[in-house]
Amino acid sequence: METREQAESRREENLRKWQVSRRRLLQLLGVAGVAAVAAPLVPSLLRRGGNREAVADEGAAPARVRQWAMVIDLRRCDGCQGIDLPPQCTEACIQGHYGPEPMEWVQVYEQELSGGGTQFIPTPCQQCQNAPCVNVCPVGATFATPEGVVLIDQERCIGCRLCMAACPYDRRFFNWGDAPVPPEAQLADYDPEHQFPAKRGTVMKCNFCPHMARSGKLPYCAQACPTNAIYYGDLEEDIATNGLELVKLSQFLSENQAYHLKAELGTKPRVYYIAGHGQAVGRSPDHEGRKPTRWPWQERAAGAQTWTR
């Protein structure tokens, strides 16, 4: 009898203890829940602290930073009809960056003119200063450098493609499968400034070649343009070149009434256009069509897949 009562009381005590521990458990669970949900905000909070320090640092070391920009003179762009080849800017970019098929980081669009005929618009990433892609990226994989260039860190990109949905210029490309790239690209050290080797399930785009400019070269597209229609420049020093001549950038832009693509969207691109249809190199607007782009390493890549855009 006694033992049973004792057992009863012990069980009750245990039950009570358990109730208490359960309460603690619930509290713990609640705190853990709050912590888990708040966790995605932690990097933002940390970065807020970090940002302030960075600003202070900038004040201490005032080095001028290049502000890369591009001017594309459409008066001189004939879509490479004159040399009867696919657009050379596109192909040089593909070869320089081991660009996977079907990506054309610099794509030459043929647009109908309001009054009939067509014009060619070589379109790299517009390097927007109010970049929709940078704004929406959930992990900061797409970011703007101090030089005003928008880059993608393919080692951080989670492949959600919201940046592609956000880009109003259709300038972002997804690695849907294992892209065909040559073996030498696979061996290279990855860097967001050149983006090879391509990584499956991540986004790629024109990187504006700041690494080329730092070593004193023009971007691949500007180098390869047979009519020197692409100027690459620095808004900070206010100068630009197409490899042939130097121009004072601001003056060149204003004197030629340069414009932005879809300026009404307020994306503030770093790529400017000068209206034209290739008249300076003798193209008639009625001469329509351009050669399709070629990707040279299709055969060399083992087990690679291509897709259409």
């Binding site: 966790a39 995605p40 905000l41 932690v42 990097p43 933002s44 704004n135 929406v136 990226c137 959930p138 992990v139 900061g140 994989a141 951080r156 989670i158 919201l162």
Partner: peptide
């Protein structure tokens, strides 16, 4: 998303 999350996205 937790390691590099941006609250603006």
């Amino acid at each position: 998303l937790v390691l590099f999350g941006r609250w603006q996205s």
